[in-house]
Write a protein that binds this DNA or RNA. Structure first.
Ligand SMILES: [Mn+2]
Ligand SMILES: [Mn+2]
Ligand SMILES: [Zn+2]
Ligand SMILES: [Zn+2]
Lengths: 153, 153
DNA sequence: CGCTAAAAAGAAATCGTTTCCCTTTGGCAC
DNA sequence: GTGCCAAAGGGAAACGATTTCTTTTTAGCG
């Protein structure tokens, strides 16, 4: 249970995805896991610059995409259509998120009640649903209480 | 009930939004209303080029945004994060869409059952929900029956 | 008809994201 | 430990969807 053996388990996660465990990837996951708000690739890059003498923005984009494809991190659907990522700590399976458009915090919405809706849609349209997007946007309790929580996008 | 008085009602729609009724805007709405699939700004631009000697792409972007802000047309959330628009013919109020990722057809999902979910989210997180995104992606009945329906994105 | 603010054209800029190409490195074999 | 090689990373450049800017045209109104 020491930090050497635990190590956030990121090594195993990367191995499962067939990705080499590099320092950049490990620290990227560390930063995302410690940050409770969604980050843009450039913001993560700036954070990484404090930990590595050289770190390229393309590396950040590349790894973020790989990690998101592997399901290790989640993407945020943002009205400005830019990329944002978040490390979802929920152990459970399929679920959705409530994102604060003010401070960028992300909270889990454990149940997905959309399954029933899907059944009716299939019946009604005769189509086949391959995926769905459900995201709740708003202001989290912190931002409701304190406007200074606000984070610029 | 003749075509002069009916005129798709687009003039009134534009006036309500405080927008001048220009030929470009009228034809944009005509094209979108006749097309049952979502279009990119550039695709709409190409269609408009067949109707106007001069039509600028920035004009298309500008008007699409204005019309979408006014609620006259709808935007499609697409994984490639590009803009797509669709004229939603549903008279009813709040609802969501099933989009075919193969042929781009859009179908209405009249009820929004997410309200209950929202109530619980507010209770659970203590936040305030300002909007939500619900979209179902998949293959429509036409594409399931005939692969040739497919449209490139 | 004449005015004026809104709209549109066309060219150029923007900038988030991706591609390219060369160098470095992690993981494995020996 | 050493060597090998495919994967990963760096940096510069390209890309391309979207936006901005400036000038010209037009819709709407008296
Ligand atoms: Mn989650
Ligand atoms: Mn609709
Ligand atoms: Zn917040
Ligand atoms: Zn289809």
């Amino acid at each position: 249970m020491n930090s050497d053996t635990e190590n956030h388990g990121f090594g195993a996660v990367l191995k499962e995805l067939g990705l080499k465990e590099t320092p950049k990837r490990r620290v990227m996951l560390e930063i995302l896991a410690e940050e409770q708000r969604f980050l843009s690739p450039e913001e993560l890059w700036l954070a990484l610059k404090g930990r590595f003498k050289t770190i390229g923005l393309p590396t950040v984009y590349r790894n973020l995409e790989e990690l998101a494809n592997g399901g290790v991190i989640s993407t945020v659907i943002h009205p400005n259509r830019q990329l944002y990522y978040y490390f979802c700590t929920a152990e459970s399976g399929h679920h959705h998120h409530f994102i604060c458009t003010s401070c960028r915090r992300v909270e889990d919405i454990p149940e997905c009640t959309v399954a029933a809706m899907e059944g009716e849609i299939v019946t009604r349209t005769g189509g086949k649903i391959t995926s769905h997007i459900v995201q709740f946007n708003g202001f989290c309790r912190h931002c409701l209480a304190d406007p200074n929580e606000r984070t610029a996008i």
